[in-house]
Design a protein around this nucleic acid. Structure first.
Lengths: 98, 98
DNA sequence: ACGAGTGTAACGCATGGGGTTACAATAAAT
DNA sequence: ATTTATTGTAACCCCATGCGTTACACTCGT
């Protein structure tokens, strides 16, 4: 990964809220969270929690997995920016099919 | 989802550590974490963090994504056990392709 | 000028990752 | 039978983060 993956909050804002003409205040009410919580999420100040993913999936009839996948990519990218260097590879070449 | 997805710690223990004959103490040293941290992980007492996923991927030459995917399934399943009920569906049928 | 919507700071609370130290229990080796 | 290694876990620490409330200042459109 070269550049930071798209934050799910941005997608939610651009692809869901804006097309529906929903304000942050109204969307927060419908999702059952505080205005602050939603604002920080769509402004990429906070991560998408599993709970929030479920709320979004319920409100928009989409899969929570797809939203969490976006978040996971962001989280992994951020973690890889401070990747640990003190990891000693395990002896045998672990070839497990996944 | 009916039953709880497999915890990545269990997979790591059964499919990686055991085949390699690695003890928790040694694996923890190689991963660069404390023995407590690894013990709680493989005993499914704690979640897999992105940092830990990177450590495992470096040590075993596997993808961090695959490990995080397991964790995500568990997290989503657990969150769905206390799914919020105060979510009001958004007006228009949101049909966005993902 | 006014109200709606917004970003955000300052709090509080609860959870969770990660560390260290220490103890008890088990398993293995002598 | 007595060491030794390995382990689970408790108690404690620090720090980050999700979520809430309240409050303030800003930017709009009317």
């Amino acid at each position: 990964m070269i550049r930071k993956p798209t934050h799910p909050g941005n997608v939610f804002l651009e692809d869901v809220m804006k097309p529906l003409g929903l304000t942050i205040t109204d969307a927060a009410r419908m999702l059952g969270v505080s205005r602050k919580t939603l604002s920080e999420f769509v402004n990429e100040k906070s991560a998408l929690s599993p709970q929030m993913a479920i709320r979004i999936s319920k409100a928009t009839n989409t899969s929570a997995e797809s939203w969490l996948n976006m978040q996971q990519k962001v989280a992994l990218w951020e973690a890889s920016q401070h990747a640990p260097t003190n990891v000693i590879p395990f002896p045998q070449p672990t070839a497990l099919e996944m």
